[in-house]
Design a binder for these strands. Structure first.
Lengths: 147, 147
DNA sequence: AGTGAAAGTGATATACG
DNA sequence: CGTATATCACTTTCACT
């Protein structure tokens, strides 16, 4: 599916505020709301749009720590881990990566004790490396059109 | 601000689909839409809710590579980098972290050539390590209430 | 903090350029 | 692919609890 300039403008609106009404998007891009609605539906069907979410502040809801945890899985433990990781509430994102290490996870934790117990759950799967997140310098920056 | 059970149910709805109407949320949690609207507004004002966004598939819009790039900044180069990184369209997320390395970025790229030219832009700031993302195992999992 | 009702606005389906 | 219209749903405001 091709994405024309109009669709990029719509995607820009939706990336910046997923709850913007179709009517408001229409005003900003210069078409009527049924046209916006149809274009959005087509992009959803083509899986260009994969969903709409809300950012909530982990800190404000009681998660005092955020960390990146890298896992180097033991022989034969990667596949079991790829299933297990889906069940951890602490894991916000999990990427499988190339290189010596296999997995990077972004996790939210209550406190140091919670971090310790979480890492304890990982040690049966492999060696871990923990990097505490000090600040989120760029947050979910908008994906832009290719030149 | 305290977050009661009702607000957690609202946050669950909004995290799973930011475009759900207040009326529909109300039906699912058992209150009327003006009540939903007021609760959402208070959570926005308290910065518990930090925004609403749309996931778009980088691959579908022409970004064939995703990578995690770690930067170990040269002496005196961290601060300039923290400003510069905001201007890179490739960087979707950027975290400042503890440890030997200072920065981890999630980046989207057109192809290997684009990766090469992007890394070239980083070498004046520090040493980089690149991990290509093979798959996104857990995608923006919902943040849940603490026990 | 939530409800119910009124007025305004938005969404959706259909007919038609 | 888009608009225009009509109908229905949703949002917002406000008086009341």
């Amino acid at each position: 599916m091709k994405i024309d300039e109009l669709n990029w403008k719509i995607l820009k609106c939706l990336q910046n505020n997923a709850r913007m009404s179709n009517a408001e998007i229409g005003r900003q891009v210069g078409i009527t709301s049924p046209a916006v609605s149809e274009r959005i539906k087509k992009m959803e069907d083509a899986e260009i749009i994969q969903g709409y979410t809300t950012f909530i502040s982990p800190f404000e809801v009681g998660y005092q720590l955020k960390a990146l945890i890298t896992l180097r899985a033991f022989m034969g433990m990667l596949k079991p881990f790829l299933e297990k990781v889906k069940t951890y509430d602490e894991v916000v994102n999990c990427y499988r990566i190339t290189g010596n290490e296999n997995i990077v996870m972004e996790v939210v934790l209550k406190n140091q004790k919670h971090l310790e117990s979480f890492i304890d759950q990982l040690i049966s799967f492999g060696e871990t490396k923990t990097q505490i997140v000090l600040s989120h310098v760029v947050k979910h920056s908008e994906i832009k059109a290719l030149e």
